[in-house]
């Protein structure tokens, strides 16, 4: 059943590829602006690079969510899926997987380039890529909870950010800490393990929470 859902999501995403570009363009633009706004000093850039990359990645993922959920809500597809007996958690899981594949993966692919631009030290590249790989699925899943709660509201954008950003704080701290530690040549496996633990927790809990929220949203 989840394969059917995934196939549909991928087909829908494929039909409006221009929307895929939004988060990645946002990510690149914002990170590019930092050296102009803060300072082009390589030493300073190296220091702020982990935080900048992580914060921008979080916000880019938030930017990509709206159409993924709202279209299905507005055209009644969500009601039809629930009436077909599909577990709401499964709908969320399929959407989050697509969200990760088509938003987070492109970000991770361009992140080494951004790293070079922000003078991230060579030793931190792997830490950055792996921490993003481990952290972004949790980001997508937590965002799904917020999106499921606010999809029925006409202007849920700010509310979504308010609900979800506090939950991102641990991911942001451990993600940026892993990259920082690698920059200074220290071991960063502890931070990565924390990210992995958060991932296990969100994968097992978030779809269910978001599914329940989705059901409430459909019932207004």
């Amino acid at each position: 059943m989840i394969l059917t859902l995934l196939k549909r999501e991928i087909r829908l995403i494929n039909r409006k590829r221009s929307e895929l570009l939004n988060p990645i363009v946002f990510f690149i633009l914002v990170t590019v602006l930092f050296p102009f706004g803060v300072s082009p000093e390589p030493a300073l850039l190296q220091q702020i690079a982990p935080g900048v990359i992580w914060v921008c990645a979080l916000l880019s993922v938030l930017l990509s969510l709206d159409s993924l959920y709202r279209d299905d809500f507005d055209d009644g597809s969500l009601v039809q899926l629930l009436m077909a007996g599909v577990a709401p958690g499964l709908i969320v899981l399929a959407k989050s997987m697509c969200n990760w594949l088509f938003t987070a993966i492109p970000l991770i692919i361009v992140s080494p380039l951004i790293g070079i631009m922000l003078n991230l030290s060579d030793s931190a590249f792997w830490a950055m890529v792996v921490s993003l790989l481990l952290g972004t699925p949790s980001v997508c899943l937590i965002a799904a909870i917020g999106m499921s709660l606010t999809v029925g509201l006409r202007k849920g954008g700010i509310l979504l950010a308010l609900l979800v950003l506090p939950l991102y704080v641990p991911i942001l701290i451990f993600g940026a800490m892993a990259v920082n530690a690698a920059t200074m040549g220290q071991s960063y496996s502890g931070q990565l393990l924390f990210l992995a633990a958060i991932l296990v927790f969100t994968v097992s809990m978030a779809p269910w929470a978001a599914g329940a929220a989705l059901k409430i949203s459909v019932s207004e």
Partner: peptide
């Protein structure tokens, strides 16, 4: 159940929409 909101995706073809619902 067929409601006011049709539940069909405008970015899919007629056949794709129907095939999806049969499959699901």
């Amino acid at each position: 159940y067929l409601g006011h909101q049709l539940g069909i995706k405008s970015n899919l073809t007629v056949a794709e929409n129907l095939a999806f619902y049969i499959e699901i």
